[in-house]
Amino acid sequence: MKKNRGQDVEVYFFGPGVELVGKPSDKVKEALTMLRNAEVYGGYCPFNAQQFDVESAVSGEGLHGEPAGEALVRLIEEGYQVVGY
C-alpha cells in the first residue's frame, strides 16, 4: 500500500503477534526486513512483550513500545484505517 499507492502504513503487533516478532521464524524475519526496507513503521504492546519474555528482541526490531489501547486510539485519531488479523 505504501509503495504502490503512496499511502502511509503502520504495523502494530499485540497479543501472540508480539511473540512472533520476538521469536521469529525465517518468514517473519523476511517480512520484518521488507517492512523496514519499505520504511513502514510499527509498534508493539510492551505488556505483551513482557508477558512473552521477548522485550529486548522486539525492541531490537526497530519497533516502538506503545500500549495497545493507546495505539488504537492514536491511529484512529490520526485517520488510519485499522485492519486486524
Rank of each mutant, 00 (worst) to 15 (best):
M1W: 00
M1G: 11
K2G: 05
K2V: 10
K3L: 10
N4S: 12
R5Y: 11
G6I: 13
G6D: 13
G6F: 11
G6E: 09
V9G: 07
E10N: 01
V11T: 06
Y12W: 12
Y12N: 06
F13Q: 07
F14H: 11
F14E: 09
G17N: 14
G17S: 14
V18D: 10
V18G: 10
L20K: 15
V21L: 06
G22T: 04
G22M: 10
P24G: 06
P24T: 12
D26Y: 06
K27S: 11
V28Y: 14
V28P: 11
K29F: 14
K29P: 12
K29A: 10
E30T: 04
A31M: 15
A31F: 13
L32D: 06
T33C: 07
T33S: 12
T33G: 03
T33K: 15
M34Y: 08
M34A: 03
L35E: 09
N37Q: 14
A38D: 14
A38G: 11
E39R: 05
V40L: 09
Y41P: 06
G42E: 12
P46D: 08
P46E: 11
P46V: 06
A49I: 01
A49P: 09
A49E: 07
A49N: 06
Q50S: 13
Q50M: 12
Q51P: 00
Q51A: 09
F52E: 04
F52P: 07
D53Q: 15
V54G: 13
E55L: 02
S56C: 03
V58N: 05
S59Q: 13
S59I: 05
G62Y: 11
H64T: 02
E66T: 01
A68G: 10
A68S: 10
A68L: 12
A68D: 04
A68I: 02
G69A: 05
E70G: 04
A71N: 09
A71G: 01
A71T: 10
R74F: 01
R74E: 02
I76W: 01
E77R: 00
E78Y: 00
Y80H: 02
Y80A: 05
Q81T: 07
V82K: 09
G84S: 09
G84D: 02
Y85A: 10
Y85V: 05
